[in-house]
């Protein structure tokens, strides 16, 4: 299996969300994900990059193929140095929002992906890592 370098995208503006979606779509498609899974992964990426833009103002997204245990998949990392999340379990509750959003971005992304890790410290920033595996 080939090891590609992680692609990194800066999220500074709304239009970067589209760029991120495109990169994720291309990566997931080339890894062999089916259309519905590609749409799931891209939609999660759209939610999580928008969170960076709305809540932190700016940050980065990294997208890379991963392999472990004869499984292959894709990993997306969303990192910002924004205000952080005080109550993570609240933020993960469907419908909870501090911005008149639908409050579905975090809980929904978790459901669309196979794995999600959320680390956040108030005043320091937030890192969300999501992964999806092929032929799960």
């Amino acid at each position: 299996m080939s090891i590609a370098l992680a692609d990194e995208i800066r999220i500074d503006s709304e239009s970067d969300i589209v760029v991120a979606r495109k990169l994720v779509r291309d990566t997931a498609t080339s890894l062999g994900f089916g259309l519905t899974d590609v749409t799931r992964i891209v939609t999660a990426a759209s939610e999580l990059t928008r969170n960076i833009y709305i809540y932190a103002g700016s940050g980065i997204m990294r997208c890379r193929p991963v392999a472990s245990d004869a499984r292959r998949g894709v990993e997306l990392v969303f990192e910002d140095k924004g205000p952080g999340i005080a109550d993570i379990s609240k933020a993960m509750t469907p419908g909870y929002t501090t911005s008149r959003g639908m409050g579905m971005g975090l809980p929904g992304s978790k459901r669309l992906m196979d794995e999600m890790d959320l680390k956040s410290a108030v005043g320091q920033g937030t890192t969300v890592v999501v992964r999806k595996w092929l032929h799960k």
């Binding site: 090891i3 472990s68 245990d69 004869a70």
Partner: peptide
């Protein structure tokens, strides 16, 4: 165990 090759390839 999983052996790791410097290329990043992992062998179970």
């Amino acid at each position: 165990l999983e052996m790791r090759h410097p290329s990043g390839k992992v062998t179970s």
